[in-house]
Design a protein around this nucleic acid. Structure first.
Lengths: 126, 126
DNA sequence: TTTTTAAGTTAGTTTATTCTAACTTTACTT
DNA sequence: AAGTAAAGTTAGAATAAACTAACTTAAAAA
């Protein structure tokens, strides 16, 4: 149930790559994240054990429903937080890096409150 | 120079305790953070080596200028982020917990932009 | 077909941060 | 003075997440 920052990043990366590539392999994740393939291999073993991904015999990686739920939540946060920071005047790249860290640590409650506030805010541009 | 989340938390805690107690000892930090005194002892050794704290022979812990700079930055973020989330309607306790995590990962740029935005926002209450 | 490359795995290392357990030292109490 | 308690230290274990190095397997290329 509880998934940590590292797992969340892997799941999010799988989701993002699956939108760009026909299939996602360990090596794609490694190059996207700048990790060694051995690190990804171990991480995939853990995700498999937690049943957050399935891996075919060809090595193609697919999110399970549970994995997809987490990945989508994190990815939504990522996109929203980035957009929000950019709207505040933060440089795109820094905004994305910050979003990448905040997305793992912000609570459901705070994220919802932020979304609500932005929606109703007179400072539009979002 | 680069100080990590754990160090930042210790420095912030020393600052907070020094406002409440006449002197700050390892054992005070341990009880504040809920850690064992051995963990704090090791952490204090590291902060001493990084010259972020000084420890008297009685075991009283004081922030160096460098340590204080970090502690004050983190503590300011903590207070601001908590207030901001509470203003968004987040429960005080959750706001403080979230602030505690976000304060370590948000960039200078984003924090400044957020402060600026809040200052100019028509959604006052802060 | 033999060789080479690409992908994945496994074993063992490193670093950071906590922990437990055992020890020292100082101070307090009786 | 002897015994106890509080504070601090040290050594060794656990966990997590990366790493290197060496290995296997399968596909591609010569």
């Amino acid at each position: 149930m509880k998934s940590n920052e590292s797992s969340e990043d892997y799941l999010e990366t799988i989701l993002i790559l699956s939108e760009k590539l026909p299939v996602v392999r360990s090596v794609d994740i490694a190059s996207e994240l700048g990790f060694k393939k051995s690190s990804v291999s171990v991480a995939m073993k853990n995700l498999r054990e937690k049943e957050q991904i399935n891996v075919t015999k060809e090595g193609y990686i697919y999110l399970t429903d549970e994995g997809k739920k987490i990945a989508e939540m994190i990815y939504e946060r990522h996109k929203f937080l980035t957009k929000w920071l950019v709207a505040l005047g933060v440089d795109e790249e820094i905004a994305s890096e910050d979003a990448c860290r905040i997305e793992h640590v912000i609570s459901k409650e705070s994220f919802a409150a932020l979304k609500e506030n932005v929606k109703n805010c007179s400072n539009h541009s979002m």
